[in-house]
């Protein structure tokens, strides 16, 4: 599903953020990306939603090299993804529902469809009664849920969350993380969560990809974690073996229901161009 092949990212100003990274995630997998501040967690996620490009190596999603995606195709890639960024930006002057609806409006859905899906998404994150509030009238946790609702409203196959529990208290953090884990169960979405919240890392029996200084220093699978065996070697050979393991990693694949195949639009980010797009201005 997702593959990093010998990926190095060098920022021109600050130097190497990721180095020779080889890593892959299966469909429907839930994984934590962890490591100290500056380890490269955010950079890893940015490479996936094409906000940054690798300096060398390739990033593949469903076999497609998104690291070489034409900039014009990036929007279609992102419509197939849900991204919750580190500071979960919401538009301050728009209601919760409007913030969530934005992710569907960019796809050109009809208003009626948008309303219905937004409702469902807000329901899912437990914000049904707050649809018409402004973000400033929400608690931190509720804001974060709004950001998550926005990320899941178009039923993406990949959800990326960068420190989704960043500045929330423990109870709320469990809440939010539980929500993401449940989503993985329900929708069979591939979910990557960057966090350095030790409590969360220990609480959930899911894969843990450990970064330090831009290097992969550990990759603990869910089952191994449960067994207490901690480090997992990451030589290339073994990594390749790991890639081939078809078996489910983490506990989210347990109930594999058909993922509803309803996309907001039949647009495929893999299509290099949308002919209707340029014509609309």
């Amino acid at each position: 599903m997702i593959q990093f092949r010998d990926v190095t990212k060098v920022y021109r100003k600050t130097g190497t953020a990721l180095e020779a990274l080889d890593l892959s995630f299966d469909e429907g997998e839930f994984a934590f990306i962890t490591g100290p501040s500056g380890a490269g967690k955010t950079t890893l996620l940015k490479l996936l939603y094409a906000a940054e490009r690798p300096s060398s190596g390739e990033v593949l999603i469903e076999g497609r090299a998104i690291s070489r995606l034409h900039p014009r195709s990036v929007p279609w890639l992102r419509r197939n993804m849900g991204v919750v960024i580190q500071d979960f930006r919401l538009l301050p002057r728009r209601t919760v529902a409007e913030n969530v609806a934005l992710a569907l409006e960019v796809c050109g859905l009809k208003q009626a469809d948008i309303q219905q899906r937004v409702h469902a998404a807000l329901d899912r994150v437990g914000l049904r009664d707050m649809a018409n509030r402004l973000p400033t009238e929400l608690s931190g946790g509720e804001q974060q849920r709004t950001a998550i609702a926005r990320a899941i409203v178009n039923e993406p196959s990949i959800i990326l969350a960068d420190e989704p529990t960043g500045n929330l208290d423990q109870e709320l953090s469990f809440d939010i993380m539980g929500l993401l884990v449940d989503l993985c169960h329900e929708k069979r979405a591939t979910i990557l969560v960057a966090t350095h919240d030790r409590n969360q890392l220990d609480a959930w029996n899911v894969r843990e990809v450990q970064l330090a200084d831009g290097r992969l220093v550990g990759d603990v699978l869910a089952d191994e974690k449960a067994n207490g065996s901690n480090r997992r070697p990451t030589t290339e050979v073994e990594q390749a073996e790991a890639d081939e393991q078809p078996q489910a990693q983490g506990d989210c694949i347990a109930n594999q229901e058909e993922r509803p195949d309803s996309r907001p639009e039949d647009e495929d980010w893999q299509a290099q161009e949308d002919p209707g797009e340029e014509a609309s201005i």
């Binding site: 939603y49 929007p75 992102r78 419509r79 991204v83 934005l102 992710a103 960019v106 340029e278």
Partner: peptide
Amino acid sequence: LAIVALVGGTKWF
């Protein structure tokens, strides 16, 4: 502009 880009809005959108 940034959020529109993040949720997959095109430049023109």
